[in-house]
């Protein structure tokens, strides 16, 4: 068995957690945005007159959905580049 010091261990755990977090945090908003686009396209195909209203609403709601993924990205950037635990204890 290797003898890892605790700084290496914390770094490994951080990288693993960041990878898993960004994977899940990208998959779920992507699926949900896909559902939103699908419904909006259904609406446009059914009623081409309402395309302008639908487009504005779709863009706003896409931005609101995408900000969830951006929050995940920010948390992971902080974990990787400005990790509070690594700075405090070592």
């Amino acid at each position: 068995m290797w003898q890892l010091d605790s700084q290496t261990l914390i770094t490994i755990i951080t990288i693993l957690g960041a990878t898993i977090g960004i994977v899940i945090g990208c998959i779920v908003p992507a699926i949900m945005e896909g559902i939103a686009v699908q419904k909006a396209l259904d609406g446009i195909a059914r009623q081409p007159d309402a395309a302008n209203d639908l487009r504005t609403t779709l863009l706003i709601s896409m931005a609101l959905l995408e900000s969830t993924a951006i929050y995940v990205l920010l948390v992971i950037l902080v974990l990787l580049f400005a990790n509070p635990i690594l700075d405090r204890f070592f």
Partner: peptide, 13 residues
């Protein structure tokens, strides 16, 4: 907060 973080996150990423 979300207005600020969304713009920053998109452009920075």
């Amino acid at each position: 907060l979300s207005l600020a973080v969304r713009l920053f996150g998109n452009i920075f990423s």
